[in-house]
């Protein structure tokens, strides 16, 4: 087992005076995929936001051994962490091509950016067809592909994926998860994936965490969680 790429110890998060995360410990292995599961309102999205400093947070967060707690999100992005937010974060008035350029905005290596644009179009030919279209006119599935494409333009080492399957047709979801699998296998992109669709996420992940109202209730290998009937019935709902 290799060293953790991302490691959080005693992670707490607050909305105003209300504490919503309670001393979570979690890690993502370099080159691995970790799933973060839980019901609606369990704090999955908040955990992702806490990891990149978008909510008030206490605890210790390390990326590649380096503390990143309290760093602004713009700096964390420059450490090659790409956050694909819930709701996709599309720049609706900009074209598809401009949306992808925005994803590479923190980079200076112009030649490599051009290569990466070709790579993203390779993964998502649909985006190439629509590159001159206003991004707001894309379908939900296409906008999710665009969000992933924008994240890839950073050439990330770690992707934080927030409910990528949300609201999408099963065929599109399958396509998207196949691309995640390829990214992880071929390009060694590590991932922390938040999902309501537990079966899907456990299929992709090596390790999994289960949280309930801001507290960690279960951690383990994804296969263990997948094969444990009582966990499946009580927490994962399938």
């Amino acid at each position: 087992m290799s060293a953790p790429l991302l490691e959080a110890r005693g992670l707490c998060a607050f909305y105003g005076a209300t504490q919503v995360l309670f001393r979570l410990d979690l890690s993502v292995v370099a080159g691995g995929v970790t799933a973060l599961l839980g019901a609606n309102g369990a704090g999955k999205t908040t955990t992702l936001r806490a990891l990149c400093g978008m909510v008030r947070t206490t605890g210790d967060i390390r990326l590649g051994g380096q503390p990143i707690m309290g760093r602004p999100i713009e700096d964390i992005v420059r450490l090659k962490v790409a956050h694909v937010p819930q709701g996709r974060g599309t720049f609706v008035r900009q074209t598809v091509a401009e949306n992808l350029q925005i994803g590479a905005m923190s980079r200076r290596d112009h030649a490599a950016i051009a290569t990466d644009l070709e790579r993203v179009y390779g993964y998502f030919p649909r985006l190439f067809e629509r590159r001159r279209q206003q991004a707001g006119t894309l379908s939900g599935g296409e906008q999710q592909m665009l969000a992933v494409g924008r994240a890839l333009m950073l050439r990330p080492t770690l992707m934080l994926l927030d409910e990528p399957s949300f609201g999408l047709a099963p065929r599109i979801v399958a396509e998207l998860f196949e691309i995640f699998r390829r990214l992880n296998r071929d390009e060694k992109v590590s991932m922390l994936i938040v999902e309501q669709n537990a079966a899907l996420a456990l299929d992709l992940a090596d390790e999994a965490y289960l949280i309930e109202t801001g507290r960690m209730v279960m951690t383990g290998a994804a296969a263990t969680l997948r094969n444990n009937d009582s966990i499946r019935r009580s927490y994962l709902g399938y």
Binding site: I73, V77, G89, F91, E98, I102
Partner: peptide
């Protein structure tokens, strides 16, 4: 333009 259109998403892009 990105910062004006969608500040949070723009920050996520660095």
């Amino acid at each position: 333009r990105a910062a004006a259109a969608n500040p949070e998403s723009a920050r996520l892009a660095g």
